[in-house]
Amino acid sequence: MFRIFTAEVIGTFILVFFGCGAAVIAGGDGTTGVGLTGIALAFGLAIVAAAYGLGPISGAHLNPAVSLGVMLAGRMSGGRFAVYAVAQVLGALLGAGILYLIASGSAGWTGGMGTNGYGAGYGGEYDVMAALLFEAVATFLFVTVILGATQPGASPGFAGLAIGLTLTMIHLVGIKITGVSVNPARSIGPALFAGGAALSQLWVFILAPLVGGALAGLAHAAGITRAE
């Protein structure tokens, strides 16, 4: 269990450090930086890296919503879910903390941490209902793909690639809506360092992904999205 805990800490660190790091350090507008497409790819490629590097140890959930879906699909116990969730939040905090230390070393840093948000002054200024709906639906689809790609009979060598590409697609659609969470740990880490609106809006990025992940797990357990 220690190896599993450590793998989830490191894997979630990879996701937050490289995904949010692309937004904070390299984002720009596509001319002076990687742009929205580059940020989307950074999150997706981080998942691919962690899946192949650490997946054999823990499955590389890196996300409490994914672990919740796996638990409700009948693939893990409640106790193991708790271990995964704690490790994921810790990894996100460490990733955000290191990113904060690096970003704050630049005179041009504006204080951004790649946080999630909605409403006036954020992205496309979508309202809270749009944010809740997008996060719940996107997480449902994301966890459904994960459960399908890792079920018996699937091609195990391609699971990490399928999962990473799915997260990339979700970001391509959703960065302007919420910055894309689909992962409570990914939202908690940067928000605790950024403070302000990121903290006050954090409930959306905990609640909606957990609901989406839970529904995906229940649908899989019921056989709706599971190969028979």
Rank of each mutant, 00 (worst) to 15 (best):
M1E: 12
R3D: 13
I4N: 13
I4D: 15
I4G: 11
A7K: 02
V9F: 00
V9M: 00
I10W: 01
T12C: 02
F13S: 09
F18Y: 09
F18R: 03
V24F: 05
A26S: 11
G28C: 14
G28M: 14
D29A: 04
D29R: 04
T32M: 14
G33F: 08
T37D: 13
T37K: 08
G38N: 02
G44R: 01
G44T: 07
G44D: 00
I47R: 06
A50T: 01
G53C: 04
G53T: 07
L54K: 12
L54Q: 14
P56Y: 01
G59V: 05
A60N: 04
N63M: 02
L68N: 02
V70A: 14
M71E: 06
M71I: 04
G74K: 05
R75P: 01
G78Q: 12
F81E: 12
A82K: 04
A82P: 07
V83A: 11
V83E: 10
A85V: 10
V86N: 01
A87R: 02
Q88K: 00
A92I: 04
L93M: 11
A96I: 07
A96V: 05
G97F: 01
Y100T: 10
Y100S: 10
L101V: 12
L101R: 09
I102C: 12
I102D: 09
A103Y: 07
S104G: 04
W109P: 06
T110V: 08
T110W: 10
G114A: 03
G114Y: 00
T115N: 10
G117W: 03
A120K: 15
G121S: 13
E125M: 12
Y126G: 09
V128N: 08
V128S: 06
A130V: 03
A130N: 12
L133V: 09
F134Q: 06
V137H: 10
T139H: 05
F140C: 11
F140I: 03
F140S: 08
L141V: 08
V145N: 14
I146C: 04
T150I: 06
Q151C: 06
Q151R: 15
A154V: 05
P156I: 08
G157C: 07
A159M: 06
A162Y: 01
G174T: 02
I177C: 08
I177V: 12
I177R: 12
T178E: 05
G179F: 03
S181K: 02
A185Q: 07
A185L: 09
S187Y: 03
I188Y: 05
A191L: 14
A191Q: 14
L192F: 13
A194T: 07
G196T: 09
G196V: 03
A198N: 09
S200Q: 15
L202H: 04
W203L: 07
A214F: 10
A214K: 06
L215C: 13
A219L: 08
H220N: 15
A221V: 03
A221Y: 14
A222E: 03
G223Q: 12
